[in-house]
């Protein structure tokens, strides 16, 4: 009797996905932080406490610039919904917690399944809206490349497959579960090498930009 797809997904595929994820993450982080900072030859306008500006930017930029808000706040909200939804589903579905507990050695309280499915449904809807907006808007459409669409795909895939596993629509439960696990592994493997790295760079780049601007007497 051959090894099933589920055995593969839970075994070798998981091992390799994690190895590639950790390898890729450290490579990217060390590689970028190891780069030389661009020399700034201008006279520093602010010399003390530039870090405060950095910290301020990290928090202030949580909301859009008031002047731009009417145009972009829809985008902000949709993004918040699917980001939060994704993390709630990832971190508070009890079987997921058991997955992390097995690796980390500790767990945390979870949420009831129906709450998770509700949040998962909203997450999928928000991701769909985000995609449609991206395609309909000529500017974002022109700016988008394969990376944007693939990042979207590897994000939505685990949520959709996870919902399908529990919806029991497909009679072959273990096959769907295997596909769900594999889709998550695709996300893990792709994360370090594409725009999904924003998850790690977002705060760093807010900080860096703010500090650089502050040195020149500006605000980010």
């Amino acid at each position: 009797m051959s090894v099933t797809l589920l055995d593969f997904a839970r075994g070798p595929a998981m091992q390799w996905a994690l190895i590639i994820f950790v390898f890729g993450m450290v490579w990217r982080l060390v590689g970028v932080w190891g780069l030389r900072h661009k020399a700034d030859h201008s006279q520093p306008r602010v010399t003390q406490g530039v870090w405060k500006r950095g910290l301020r930017a990290v928090f202030v930029r949580v909301l859009p610039y008031p002047e731009f808000a009417p145009k972009v706040q829809g985008q902000y909200w949709i993004s918040y919904v699917f980001h939060l939804g994704f993390f709630i589903v990832l971190l508070f579905f009890v079987p997921h917690i058991l997955f992390f507990e097995d690796i980390l050695g500790f767990g945390w309280p979870g949420l009831p399944n129906n709450v998770i499915f509700f949040v998962g449904g909203i997450t999928v809807a928000a991701l769909m809206v985000a995609l449609i907006k991206r395609i309909l808007n000529p500017v974002t459409r022109m700016m988008s490349n394969f990376d944007d669409y693939f990042a979207w795909f590897v994000t939505i895939a685990p949520v959709v497959t996870g919902l399908l596993v529990n919806a029991n629509l497909i009679p072959n439960y273990e096959l769907m579960l295997a596909i769900h696990i594999l889709s998550f592994q695709l996300l893990l493997i792709y994360l370090p090498f594409g725009k999904l790295m924003h998850g790690f760079w977002l705060m760093v780049s807010r900080w860096t930009t703010a500090v650089r601007f502050a040195r020149r007497g500006g605000l980010s």
């Binding site: 839970r10 994690l18 950790v22 390898f23 993450m25 060390v30 997921h96 997955f99």
Partner: peptide
Amino acid sequence: SATHWGNAAGLAAAAAAGA
């Protein structure tokens, strides 16, 4: 849902290689 994810040593080696 817990998997055969390998072990900490394997991940540490991956991190070292990445670094």
